[in-house]
Computed example of a mutant assay.
Amino acid sequence: MQYLVTMTTQVPADVSEATVDEVRGREAARSRELVAGGHLLRLWRPPLEPGEWRTLGLFEADDAAQLEEVLASMPLRIWRHDEVMPLLPHPNDPTSPTPLRLDATEYFTTFTVTIPDDADPNDVDARHAAEATATRDLAAKGNLLRLWSTGENRALGLWQTDAADELPAILAALPLAEWLRTETIPLTTHPSDPAHATPA
């Protein structure tokens, strides 16, 4: 099972810079071990305020208990608080991996679908079918990387685009757009992200 983990680190004021550097070095080494073990899939940095230290991580584990063992094994956990979001399969998730373009910008989108009570059931079915087709097309074009369900009527999408104004246009054109509330998080590269790691 996959999980999105928001990792927020707060280093106590009395900790020396040398200690921080030493723990961060061990964190990077442990991250490489977790990648090799198949538990750490991706790492990103979301937008940060001055002084914030936050990372988003995509992890794989058999269950919540194993995930906790993985997170507890990371050296920065001594100063870190983790928020875990279980990710469930989504029927429109791309069936084959979409190649990651290392020069593109990645985004997370959280979709909440609200269908009007008076919506025509035939129209609802038609829009869902068109949405499935649209997501397949967007994966083929290299924009949609992943799509997960995060609960009833909610989904998490991972996207990549070459231009800042490209994603809003893509989202506005989705067949379900009229019924979607969308939150978008731009992502930047994390130095320990497996997708950007330099081969040894």
Rank of each mutant, 00 (worst) to 15 (best):
E131K: 05
M85W: 10
A61M: 08
F59L: 10
D82M: 11
L48I: 12
H90P: 00
L67S: 05
R146H: 13
L138Q: 01
V84Q: 07
L138E: 02
W159G: 04
L156N: 05
G51T: 07
N122Q: 15
E68Y: 02
P89L: 02
E49V: 11
E69H: 13
A130D: 14
I185Q: 09
Q66S: 09
P50I: 03
A134T: 14
L187R: 01
M74K: 08
L76D: 01
L138H: 03
H81V: 12
D93M: 02
E131S: 11
A65E: 14
P97M: 13
P50C: 01
A132I: 04
R80M: 15
P99D: 08
A61S: 06
A72F: 12
H190P: 02
A177Y: 08
K141N: 12
R181Q: 11
E49S: 13
L171W: 03
A169M: 07
P86N: 01
P50A: 01
L67P: 00
L145G: 09
D93F: 00
T182E: 14
S73L: 13
P46H: 01
H190E: 07
T98D: 12
W179G: 00
L56P: 00
A65P: 01
V124C: 04
D62R: 15
A163D: 15
D63R: 03
L56G: 00
L174F: 00
W53L: 14
L167M: 10
G57Y: 00
E83N: 05
R101E: 05
T189N: 10
T105C: 02
I78V: 14
H128L: 14
E152V: 10
P121Y: 10
R127D: 00
